[in-house]
């Protein structure tokens, strides 16, 4: 492998990693703070892509599609929390798996009923549709650089918000001790709705960012859900910076694994990596609780 190709593949790996981070940020947030395994995260990701594609197609504005998709998925998330999922915070992980598994089926079927089975069109605005020459002989798709930027900004914002602001303090307080947090005047209920809506919005954001690169179709959430779960667990459940590190690591391992290994091994290299890491660090790379 020549040096320019190596650099390009490294960039590809990092970029894939950042995309994986976008997909897993919301999952790890909800998982870590509310102790809820939300398998329907992939369904929210799918809805984000479908809504953004529809609005962008009708209005001609990618940005409007993006905003509507993020707001809509946040609203759907809040609704889900209030109507259904808040009853499951104190239930077993298995009950959570069961109810969110049911949600996947419902969301997939409803999406198919509304939008049909044919994959959707999701075109990029011309400004970011092409590629630019990063260095001589290497063109890189502009939109992938946009994903890179958005992912890093989201990571930074989440980190600052949780670690440095009052809202973040409430969130951390509510997560570690509900009763105590209520006693000192934190409205835990509202905080949890907010966190869940934020997690859903992050899923929607990931979906609309991935939409122009991937096929926008029913069931697109499940393969991504698996990858997001892998990243979440390797990083340590609930750890935002863990998710970022794990995502980039997985992005690089996957990219180079596919290029250098046999196809059979290339397909399982992510899972091999996860098994090795968990065997070595049973609570992930950045364990949050003890």
């Amino acid at each position: 492998m020549s040096l320019p190709l190596f650099l390009e593949q490294t960039l590809n790996g990092v970029q894939l990693g950042v995309m994986l981070f976008l997909m897993s940020a919301g999952l790890t947030l909800v998982f870590g703070i509310m102790n809820l395994i939300n398998l329907a995260h992939g369904a929210l990701y799918m809805l984000g892509a479908f809504i953004a594609a529809t609005v962008a197609d009708k209005s001609g504005s990618f940005l409007l599609g993006a905003v509507v998709a993020v707001v809509a998925t946040a609203a759907i998330g809040a609704l889900l929390e209030v109507a259904l999922l808040r009853r499951f915070y104190h239930r077993s992980h298995l009950d959570q798996v069961l109810v969110t598994f049911g949600l996947i089926l419902v969301f997939n079927q409803v999406t198919q009923l509304i939008w049909g089975a044919v994959p959707m069109r999701f075109n990029l605005p011309d400004a970011v549709a092409g590629s630019i020459e990063l260095f001589p002989g290497m063109n890189y798709p502009v939109f992938r650089l946009v994903i890179l930027g958005v992912g890093l900004v989201v990571g930074l914002l989440l980190y600052v918000m949780i670690m440095r602001t009052r809202i973040g303090m409430w969130v951390r307080a509510g997560a570690s001790n509900r009763a105590m947090a209520s006693a000192i005047g934190v409205n835990v209920e509202m905080v949890f709705i907010g966190v869940f809506a934020a997690g859903a919005a992050l899923a929607g954001l990931a979906g609309l960012m991935a939409g122009p690169i991937l096929a926008v179709q029913v069931g697109m959430g499940e393969p991504v859900l698996i990858l997001a779960l892998v990243v979440t667990v390797i990083g340590g459940i609930g750890s935002i910076n863990g998710a970022l590190v794990a995502a980039i690591m997985i992005g690089l391992i996957d990219t180079f694994g596919r290029v250098l290994l046999s196809p059979a091994l290339g397909s399982m290299v992510i899972f091999l990596a996860m098994a090795v890491i968990l065997a070595w660090k049973p609570k992930g790379l950045f364990p949050v609780h003890g």
């Binding site: 190709l5 390009e8 593949q9 590809n12 790996g13 970029q15 894939l16 995309m19 992938r144 991935a210 690169i213 991937l214 393969p223 991504v224 996957d254 990219t255 180079f256 596919r258 290029v259 196809p263 290339g266 397909s267």
Partner: peptide
């Protein structure tokens, strides 16, 4: 001659090759 995973999402690496 490249065989990829059949749930693969991203082809950036293959395209670079």
């Amino acid at each position: 001659e490249v065989y990829t995973g059949f749930t693969q999402l991203d082809y950036a690496a293959e395209i670079a090759q």
